[in-house]
Amino acid sequence: MSMLTRRRSEARQTARDLAPKRPRTRRRSFWIGVAFASPFIVGFLGLFAYPILASGYYSFTDFNLFQSPDWVGLDNYEQMANDDVFWKSLANTLVLAVMGVPLTIAIALGGAHLLNTPIKGQPLYRAVIYLPSIIPIVVGGYLWRWLLNTQYGFVNYFLSWFGISGPSWLQEPDWTKPAIVLVVLWTVGGTMIIYLAALKDVPHELYEAASIDGAGPWRRFLNVTWPTVSPVTLFQVIVCLIAYLQIFTEPYVLAQERLNNISSGPDQSMLTYAMYLYQNAFVYLKMGYASAMAWVLFIVTLIVTLVVLASSKRWVHYGSK
């Protein structure tokens, strides 16, 4: 034992003698702290940790919600590999993500530039752009069902001004995905507002310097704006991608049929992964299969996110580096 440590332990001993009650008080205050944190702890354990672990267990069982689960090993995962509808739903979801994410980013960034221009009434425009984001998705979805209606819808009426005869958005398998993306893009205001905040953070001197160097608007965007907001773009891409991989409400509402029968649009073109998962869980009562699907989605999401993060080294620039 070195001199130093001995001194330390002696000091500790002295401290203990001087204040014999302290450790107990500390332990007590720890438990009091836990008690006050208990709403969160109970909520986290009961509403997050337990369901997540339970779904992992159920994914290896045949479980119908009412009777006790039967262990079936990897059956659910094997069945998934051979289930055409599963693959179709995964493909539909990926197509939506590939269409939707770049469009969302482009429109949000473009719109943020417009909202950043110093013109009269700007706060009003910002509010209007954000408005659809606070409308419940189900309400918006029903609204869009009418807007997209072939006979009475305003979308096709609007297109007719330009001599375009609009498609049957919700009845033609090739047009249902653009329709879903359109409905999702309606709430692009949320993403746009985040970009607006990011744009306001771009140092003005950089634009000045670029202008002095003779850079036009496009150059300034490419060499100043884009790299500076790239960390925000990374965040937006990941959030948006996850949202698309889990997309449920918009296609569910757009595909809905009379009496709320199970429906997935013409040629199952609106059947997203989350919708098929929901059907298995709550219509067919195949909770085991649905749990397995949820875990596969989790892994797919994780992989996609990691790929995006890995790629970010090439295109995301942090100011500090």
Partner: peptide
């Protein structure tokens, strides 16, 4: 004084737990 403080904190702790349990149930 110390007894008073402890019992009060303990009481508060118990109230916190009870409230949570009540909410949960």
């Amino acid at each position: 004084n110390s007894f008073f403080t402890t019992s009060r904190s303990r009481r508060l702790g118990v109230i916190a737990i009870a409230t949570t349990a009540a909410l949960a149930l």
